[in-house]
């Protein structure tokens, strides 16, 4: 295999596509941590549930686009229920209570899925419309991965517009700095936290669906993803959205490039990247000044 410029560019794109999935996971985790100061150990499990909900809906409808709409809604609803009845009673008790709770919830979700779908895992094929490759000037490129990058970019744009341009977004930005002041200005902070937890878990579920054609579906798929998501938030800076985006893409590209040269080191490379970033910037690339920095 000759190492050509076009191969490098191709691999860079593959990295960006993988990074897009990381970004969705990392942004959700970061939103939840940045606003609720909840370290969500169930984030990987929500991702896994997303993939299984996709399997189920695809079985019933045979329609990938229905999955695309219904998976985030279903996983988001599960997230809403989790926040409302499990996480909310633990606010004000420090970081460890919600951490342990979500840690336990992850096990419950994984075991429930094992009981319902079995332990053997499922196959999820790329939707017909998105199969095949196109030539983008540097060799053939899988359409599904272009779709991933496009979808992720669109969602991030929507999220950015929501946070920067809407009333609710203003509340979210203020809440990431000083929730107390919101309370005395008439804002029901509990409802805002509920919404954020819902959005964060919906993004995790969507990421699970999108990863399914690439990585397959099994009850344990959330484990490595949780670790990757934490690495991303640490690299980007805990609680920073921009940090999660940059770090997610960076991790995707580093994994893709390492895979090209030394596939057996791909797993290790993201930890090396994290160590490197932490040596240079102990608070991560974007520290934590606020949600949008």
């Amino acid at each position: 295999m000759e190492l050509s410029f076009s191969l490098l560019v191709q691999q860079l794109f593959i990295g960006l596509a993988l990074g897009s999935i990381y970004v969705l996971i990392g942004v959700g985790l970061s939103l939840i941590f940045g606003l609720l100061t909840v370290v969500n150990f169930a984030h990987g499990a929500f991702y896994m549930v997303g993939a299984y909900v996709a399997v189920y809906i695809f079985e019933k409808t045979g329609n990938f686009w229905a999955c695309l709409v219904l998976v985030p809604l279903a996983v988001g609803a599960l997230g809403l229920a989790t926040e409302r009845w499990l996480v909310r009673p633990l606010y004000g008790r420090g970081l460890d209570y919600p951490l342990l709770l979500t840690f336990g919830l992850a096990y419950v979700l994984v075991d429930s899925v094992r009981m319902i779908f079995g332990v053997q895992g499922e196959h999820f094929s790329t939707p017909e419309l998105l199969q095949g490759t196109v030539d983008m000037g540097f060799g053939p490129f899988p359409i599904y991965r272009i779709f991933l990058v496009g979808l992720c970019a669109t969602l991030l744009l929507a999220l950015w517009l929501f946070i920067e341009k809407t009333r609710l977004g203003l509340i979210v930005r203020a809440g990431s700095r000083d929730p107390l002041v919101l309370k005395v200005l008439g804002i029901d902070v509990d409802r805002v936290w509920l919404l954020i937890f819902g959005i964060g878990t919906a993004l995790a579920g969507l990421a699970g669906l999108l990863a399914a054609p690439l990585r397959g579906v099994n009850p344990e798929m959330g484990g490595p993803v949780l670790i990757e998501a934490f690495v991303i938030t640490v690299i980007g800076g805990m609680g920073s959205l921009v940090g999660a985006i940059v770090a997610g893409l960076l991790v995707g590209v580093v994994v893709a490039m390492t895979t090209l040269f030394q596939p057996e080191l791909a797993e290790l490379s993201i930890f090396a990247l994290m160590a490197l970033v932490l040596i240079v910037r102990p608070n991560g690339l974007f520290g934590r000044e606020g949600l949008m920095s």
């Binding site: 930005r173 203020a174 700095r177 002041v181 029901d188």
Partner: peptide, 30 residues
């Protein structure tokens, strides 16, 4: 607050990272 009770903290609690206008809007928004 919605009954008509407002409180200005001793430490003011201007929200950093927001503009003056955005800080004022926080008082009206809900």
């Amino acid at each position: 607050y919605h009954l008509g009770l407002a409180y200005v903290f001793e430490e003011r609690r201007i929200v950093p990272g927001l503009t003056v206008l955005e800080n004022i809007r926080l008082g009206i928004i809900a």
